[in-house]
Structures are given as structure tokens and as C-alpha cells.
């Protein structure tokens, strides 16, 4: 498929020199990373360097642990991710409380290099490990009447100090239209750079939707619900004027308070200029037809 050619692992390896891949394969079985089939890279060619692992794991928005960028790395260690289970319910054939191992069973863990664009106008390039959400949805069986998928993040105030203040209405929830969820670019990530996800990045399971602003890629998922109506989403509930349900990356539709035309690349340092933001974050060829005929200034 078009989005799977061109980039290979050899493009990433220089940034990942510190990794010994064999050790990872041996040590990651707990998270199912042992199933890494081989060096499959993905995505539209990305002319930019992958963001350094240290930056990806130290500069995060995960408001459950505080609103500062360094808060998730500092405080998310308190979150228990083992045991972990995901409630899958709603319009599915086989609803249930799935243990993490059951979720991962039969999933092909691939490596995919995606652009990641935050609504705050900064960006990274991240080599994710994970599987297509589609595969999981097919495993549990989607009923024909389902049109949307809702997601929910863990809400455990004693381990998540940020949820003690009402910045958002906890738990964090997100949602996709079913066709967006079934799109082959949409994945559930379990790792970054071949390492199991760290808590600050949304361990043990998180969504990755590369053509949408980062907050759509909900972290530390405990519930997936198939519905026939549009599920509520946290930032939309907090401020519907600023954050729409779709939240597709779009340089032509500004955030009411700032421009989305450009972005700053994390890791560029002091003198790196901003770069232009691409329509659908560079994935227009793959996803634009999902929104054919829609007024993207209205459905932002």
C-alpha cells in the first residue's frame, strides 16, 4: 500500500543506535513486542529526522499528571499499568473486559514512522510500534449499526495528581468516526523506538491518528465503546469553539487563539525556523477522501 513504502528502518536506525534490537525482542514479550515481525516502516515519506527519544519522552501533554510539559515524565511513574485491562463494549459482537494480553493476542506489532502535530503548533516525528486499530475492532466484531468509536483514559486520582484539579472533565475521552477508526493509518501504539511505551507517552496502549491534532491520540486506554452517535470528546466539551470533534490538522483553519499555518519542530533548538504545516499533517493523499464534500471550516 502506498503509505507503507519508501521509508525503511534504515532511515531510523541512526537515531536508534543506542538500541540493541535483539535485546528488545527478547525483553519485550510482556507487552507483546516480541511479535515484532521485522523492520516494517510506514507512512508517507518524511523528509525530517526522527525526534530524539529523550525529547519524545520528556516533552509531553498528559494533563492527568499536570499541565506542564515536564509533569508527565516527572509524575506518571505513579500510574500502575500492570495489571491492565480494556473494557470493550457497545455495538460489538464480543464485548468484554479484555486483559492486555488478550488485546495484544494475534496483533502484528509493526513499526511506523509518523508525523505528530500538536494543536499547540509544535511537532515531532515518532517511530511508533503497534498495530492497526482495525485489527482489534475486527477481532471483537463491529456490529453493522456502529458508526463511531469512543475511547476513555484511565482515571485514578490517587495515581494521577493532575486529575485532582478540574482542568478538564475527567476521565479524558476521545472519539473517531468508524471509517476513521478503520483507516489503515490509525493505530494502537504499544511502543516507541522499539521500547515499550513509557507512562508519560500513554502506556500501555494508546491511540495514534497521525492526521489529527495530538490530543485526539488518547493515551492509556481503558475503554473502547462502539456507538451509533458521536461520542463526547474532552477538549470539545471544555471549549467547543476551539476544539471540534474532527480536529484534523489543517493549516488553513486557525485555532481561534493562534495560527495553525506553521509549526515548530521539537529538537530543532534555538535557531531552527518554523516549518509549514501540511494539510492533514501530510497524509492528505491517504485520508482526504474521508472528508469529501465536508466544509472543513465548519467541521474542524
Amino acid at each position: 500500500m502506498a503509505y507503507k513504502r519508501k521509508l525503511t528502518w534504515s532511515d531510523v536506525t541512526p537515531k536508534a543506535d543506542w538500541l540493541n534490537r535483539r535485546q528488545i525482542m527478547a525483553g519485550a514479550s510482556g507487552l507483546g513486542l516480541g511479535a515484532i515481525a521485522g523492520p516494517i516502516a510506514a507512512a508517507v515519506p518524511i523528509e525530517r529526522d526522527q525526534t530524539a527519544y529523550e525529547d519524545i519522552t520528556s516533552y509531553n501533554n498528559f494533563y492527568e499528571f499536570g499541565t506542564g510539559k515536564e509533569d508527565p515524565a516527572r509524575y506518571s511513574g505513579a500510574m500502575t499499568t500492570d495489571p491492565w485491562s480494556v473494557q470493550i463494549d457497545g455495538l460489538v459482537e464480543r464485548p468484554g473486559n479484555y486483559d492486555l494480553a488478550d488485546v495484544l493476542k494475534g496483533m502484528d506489532i509493526e513499526e511506523r514512522i509518523y508525523r505528530f502535530r500538536c494543536v499547540e503548533a509544535w511537532s515531532m516525528v515518532i517511530p511508533w510500534n503497534g498495530f492497526e486499530l482495525r485489527a482489534l475492532l475486527e477481532k471483537v466484531g463491529v456490529q453493522p449499526s456502529a458508526k463511531y468509536v469512543g475511547f476513555e483514559t484511565l482515571y485514578r486520582p490517587e495515581e494521577m495528581r493532575g486529575t485532582r484539579s478540574p482542568v478538564l472533565d475527567w476521565p479524558y475521552v476521545e472519539g473517531l468516526r468508524l471509517d476513521e477508526a478503520m483507516h489503515p493509518l490509525t493505530m494502537i501504539a504499544t511502543g516507541i523506538y522499539g521500547e515499550s511505551l513509557l507512562n508519560q507517552n500513554g502506556a500501555p496502549l494508546r491511540l495514534v491518528v497521525p492526521w489529527k491534532y495530538g490530543f485526539k491520540s488518547i493515551k492509556s486506554i481503558v475503554r473502547i465503546t462502539l456507538t451509533d452517535s458521536e461520542p463526547p470528546t474532552s477538549w470539545n466539551k471544555a471549549n467547543a469553539r476551539e476544539y471540534g470533534f474532527y480536529s484534523n490538522v489543517n493549516p488553513e483553519v486557525d485555532h481561534p487563539r493562534w495560527s495553525q499555518a506553521t509549526e515548530r519542530v521539537i529538537g530543532g533548538g534555538f535557531f531552527a525556523p518554523r516549518i509549514d504545516t501540511l494539510m492533514f499533517n501530510g497524509y492528505a493523499e491517504e485520508v482526504a477522501d474521508l472528508y469529501a464534500g465536508m466544509d472543513l471550516t465548519r467541521f474542524f
Binding site: D55, Y59, K69, W122, G269
Partner: peptide, 13 residues
């Protein structure tokens, strides 16, 4: 600090 990496991943902001 910004020049020497002391301001984190996003020194300008």
C-alpha cells in the same frame, strides 16, 4: 541555557 540544551526540548517557548 537555551543554547546549551538547558531549556528542554522546546527552548524558544
Amino acid at each position: 541555557l537555551g543554547l546549551t540544551g538547558g531549556l528542554g526540548a522546546e527552548p524558544i517557548s
